[in-house]
Amino acid sequence: MTDNATQSSSLDTRDTADATGGGSGTPIISCKDVTVSFGDFQALKGISADVYEGEVVVIFGPSGSGKSTFIRTINRLEEHDGGTIVVNGVELNDDIGNLDQIRSEVGMVFQQFNLFPHLSVLRNITLAPQKVRKMGREESDTLAMELLERVGIPEQAEKFPAQLSGGQQQRVAIARALAMQPKIMLFDEPTSALDPEMIKEVLDVMGELARSGMTMMIVTHEMGFAREVADRFLFFDEGEVVEEGTPEHFFTNPQEDRTKLFLSQIL
């Protein structure tokens, strides 16, 4: 992208989570002591984390560390069995009304894209605005085309997902999530299933989104990209947040041994 320089300088002004949230005061996502268990296995052992509006938080860590599980609890694709999660002022619990409200405010992008194979690219994007937001067909079509322009593939609107490359499919998935005009975007390893040459096109779209002020939580191993766009890193291991801080903190001065070991393995 062209404005990398201004981007990184603006990021430098944000130092810690508290400083970032300075304007609004209350976090848009607030998790306290969140636990999740699958049978006997405790995947999350009490996670507390706040995300403020406009912040980009990158979560990384070894596989099986609970980072995907954590991001999936934010819109209740996994149910937490302890602690509290408040998203956009609404607490996540068994109340289904709350749930649909939260889900329509939180967009999600999956590792495997999960586009609807029986619908055209355009219909993939317009379905939720039409059914949930009760948007008319023309209005939603216009919105979808704008979003496809934004992710750089307006010419693919009438094709079906199977006719697209992996990178194109993931960009459609981003457009589909954006069509609900969410306040928060969650990315669960969005480039892990992509061939190397397609990773950049997806990261470019995500970088543009971050620069536009979207609140984002991203699980990724693309540390170069993460360093560029993130305000804050969370390092996960064995269901816990081991270390938290700015990208610079992690790249120059990580404190915990586990963090150092993991970073030495992936960098």
Partner: peptide, 16 residues
């Protein structure tokens, strides 16, 4: 399963 998850994540609701 990912199909249902993706649709759920959009807030489509069980019927849709």
């Amino acid at each position: 399963k990912g199909q249902v998850e993706a649709a759920d994540a959009l807030g489509l609701g069980t019927f849709n």
